[in-house]
Amino acid sequence: MTAAPARTGTAIGMAGLTVRFSTRRSQTTALDDVSLDIEPGEFVTIVGPSGCGKSTLLKIVAGLVRPTSGEVSLLERPVRGPQKEIGFVFQKAALLEWRGARANILLQAEMRGMDRTKAARRADELIEMTGLTGFEKALPHELSGGMQQRVALCRALLHAPPVLLMDEPFGALDALTREQMNAELHRIWRETGTTVVLVTHSIAEAVFLGTRVVVMSARPGRIIRTFPVELPAHRDYAQVMSDPRFDRLATDLRGLLGSAAANH
């Protein structure tokens, strides 16, 4: 595969990404020839069965995993090592347990050597925006899963990254908290205009949040189809859930994922 065509305005470009892991006994192909271009400001959600290499895909974009073959570019620049222009959110909040919520958010600034006063102001804005006010000093173990994930989200947004990568960020939360977080993330995305790539197992989450839904097959992970989400840019959770377009797309996805899983 040749290098990703340097189209103007591509936030993330993936061309022919293939990843093989070799263990002592066998060689597994985690990703097989994945190509995808993401425009700035898009919210792309990736759904697929467990172990289809979705997380690996995100790590490749972040420069944490090298593809066996293929090219990735982030903001028009080829990805060679760990990327700084991104915010990364994991399934686990991955907070430092000795730091309070605010100090955990500010870790981002300290590690980057950002301007202190600017970072502090930005942290306060984010704390307010995500409803963490009053919990600035609370240690992670004093916070619920949802609150911890909010802190992780604030940390990922502190340096106002142009690209936000999220690896099943709400997977460990209960259904109600998850809906709440979805609605919040949607609002944050609208307000900041960040390019977001979100990996999820939840079809509802993928459709509600995404401007595009990418469906991947079971191992080896391939892109089966990409669906544009024909819902308004400004979405209300309850309204979307009862929207016939949501239903149609969710049904399509469910059918596709069911057959994808059955074939392997």
Partner: peptide
């Protein structure tokens, strides 16, 4: 946590900062 180390890498922090913080 390996995820914390991944995170530190995306924060562009060197080994000394990662060790200290």
């Amino acid at each position: 946590d390996p995820e914390l180390l991944d995170l530190a890498a995306t924060m562009g922090a060197g080994p000394w900062r990662t060790f200290r913080k």
